[in-house]
């Protein structure tokens, strides 16, 4: 039995998502959280390309994938900027120590 290439990519996407969510659940370091978010977004980017291909609109899928990469870079930049500030104000990047707001 041979694996259909589209399905292979789909499995890759699901694996990446699984890694990403698992990371979000266990990671406490803010920088690592940003990295994990990037993994999730990359999974989505691949999923978009895949969706375009599967529906016979490869151009559309690829163009929006490229746009997502750009948009997500902005989010990552903002996230890292906040991380820098967190490191300055809290003296740590450990999220379990950055939980003063509760209840």
């Amino acid at each position: 039995m041979t694996l259909d290439p589209l399905n292979a990519v789909l499995i890759g996407v699901i694996l990446l998502l699984a890694v990403g969510f698992y990371g979000l659940l266990i990671t406490r370091n803010l920088i690592k959280i940003v990295l994990v978010l990037q993994i999730l977004v990359k999974a989505v980017v691949i999923a978009l390309v895949l969706a375009g291909k599967a529906s016979g609109q490869p151009g559309l899928g690829q163009s929006i994938a490229a746009t997502v990469i750009v948009a997500d870079t902005i989010v990552a930049v903002v996230a890292l900027a906040l991380a820098v500030q967190v490191r300055i104000r809290f003296g740590t990047l450990d999220l379990s120590k950055i939980s003063s707001l509760r209840g």
């Binding site: 989010v75 967190v86 707001l101």
Partner: peptide, 23 residues
């Protein structure tokens, strides 16, 4: 800052789901 970080990360996760839906 703490509020901003949580807001950002949770929204980003939400955004991932929206994109998956779009895909």
């Amino acid at each position: 800052l703490e509020a901003g970080v949580k807001y950002l990360v949770q929204s980003a996760v939400g955004s991932v789901f929206v994109l998956l839906g779009i895909a």
